[in-house]
């Protein structure tokens, strides 16, 4: 098991960032389709995907969105994270084999509740493919 970061509330300030990258493989898309039950042919059927305006299979939006969970659960704040809410905007398609970069920036911090608001931006070739806001509590 990979160890998550273990940041305390006092270690975190507004403006702090964390980032990592990820490539989604065919097997990732298949695994997510099985796990979620979303077996839409846009994700699984190459012949069908070719007939759409995308021209090839897409990674599920929620598979890409799941990287927000990775960001807060593993990097910012990491181990002490309690995930409270998440908004997601799917802005551009992500294809199998694409490399995406996930970046989070702390936009607000509440000392009294331990709540952080983290802006999340996922990019591909420096273009935003997904944005959202994660709200988490840093557990004591």
């Amino acid at each position: 098991m990979v160890n998550p970061k273990d940041l305390l509330l006092k270690d975190i300030s507004v403006g702090d960032t964390a980032s990592f990258s990820r490539i989604f493989t065919r097997n990732d898309v298949l695994a997510f389709a099985r796990l979620s039950g979303d077996q839409n042919p846009l994700h699984l059927d190459e012949a069908y995907a070719r007939t759409t305006r995308f021209g090839r299979r897409l990674a599920h939006g929620m598979l890409v969105g799941s990287l927000c969970s990775t960001l807060v659960g593993m990097y910012l704040p990491g181990k002490r994270c309690l995930y409270l809410s998440q908004t997601l905007f799917f802005r551009k398609p992500v294809f199998i084999g694409d490399t995406v970069v996930v970046q989070g920036v702390v936009r607000a911090k509440s000392e009294s509740t331990g709540v952080l608001e983290i802006g999340v931006s996922i990019t591909k070739d420096d273009e935003e493919v997904l944005t959202g806001i994660a709200t988490v509590q840093v557990l004591i």
Binding site: S85, S110, S112, Q137
Partner: peptide
């Protein structure tokens, strides 16, 4: 309730104490 307090702090630029919360 946590989200409510955090939103108030952000909007009105103030900090509650843990006791108050």
């Amino acid at each position: 309730y946590l989200l409510f307090v955090a939103e108030l702090e952000k909007e009105f630029d103030l900090s509650f104490s843990m006791d108050e919360v």
